[in-house]
């Protein structure tokens, strides 16, 4: 090669090598930055969720222990009243009915606010009760199956809250007549599968403009569990959520 051509060739080769180094440096910087951002995000949402859960537990415990006990006492006293006439008996029965209704609602609020109380019986029993209580008034067919190992309190709370939020969304928006909730362990992951036969939704539109906090709450808990979520849905085709939780 002519000396000038050699210089041009070396310059081009140098340029390519510089580009290679730049790309490698770019990848290293970007991966490092992303890891830090992810760790900060998880720490941030972790402390927020933990604080919220604590506050909920406090309020729910007050409601359950004080108000629940008071209502039970009032009901017992009403049962002790010996009614002289039909009108009084009707008022007593009406009051007892109302107290039962208030106690049911109180139980529902407790379910929503304090999973810990119910998680003492184990996640399986807590989810079963949650599904029964929340679909009690609506005419919804439930298919529940649980075949997974026990989780620690923190992870069980996240799973409980995820199912609660999914159930809430289904009850509020989907108009479903059947719900299926399956928790299974396969290889190194626990699969939580939640499906309904409701009206479904446009996934792309939700990603573009997330509305409400329900799905965001689910995503936050999914992140904290280091799980993955897959959603299969379309308008008028129901919704299927698959959450893959790494088994520890």
């Amino acid at each position: 090669m002519h000396p000038n051509e050699t210089r041009i060739y070396i310059a081009v080769l140098g340029g390519v090598l510089v580009l290679l180094v730049l790309v490698v440096m770019f990848v290293i910087t970007i991966v490092g930055y992303h890891r830090k951002k992810l760790a900060f995000h998880l720490k941030n949402i972790g402390s927020q969720i933990s604080y919220l859960d604590q506050q909920c537990e406090k309020i729910a415990a007050d409601l359950h222990d004080d108000l629940g006990a008071s209502l039970s006492g009032i009901k017992m006293r009403l049962q002790c009243i010996k009614a002289g006439d039909a009108d009084t008996l009707s008022i007593i029965n009406f009051s007892k009915y109302h107290i039962d209704e208030v106690m049911y609602k109180l139980r529902l609020i407790s379910f929503n606010m304090i999973p810990d109380l119910f998680l003492q019986k184990g996640l399986e029993q807590a989810l079963r009760e949650l599904l029964n209580v929340m679909t009690h008034a609506a005419n919804i067919r439930i298919d529940f199956c649980y075949n997974a190992p026990a989780f620690n309190k923190e992870r069980a709370t996240h799973i409980y809250r995820i199912v609660q939020e999914l159930l809430n969304n289904t009850m509020k928006y989907s108009g479903a007549s059947a719900i299926s909730c399956q928790v299974r362990k396969t290889k190194n992951i626990v699969q939580l599968q939640f499906t309904d036969n409701g009206k479904g939704f446009n996934k792309d539109a939700v990603i573009k403009e997330p509305r409400g906090v329900g799905l965001k709450n689910i995503m936050t808990r999914v992140d904290l569990l280091r799980a993955k979520i897959y959603i299969t849905t379309a308008p008028a085709q129901g919704a299927a959520y698959l959450i893959e939780i790494p088994a520890l």
Binding site: K203, I207, L215, K228, I229, Y230
Partner: peptide
Amino acid sequence: TKQEFILPY
């Protein structure tokens, strides 16, 4: 094999 559902931060 399947597309994970992710919402932006």
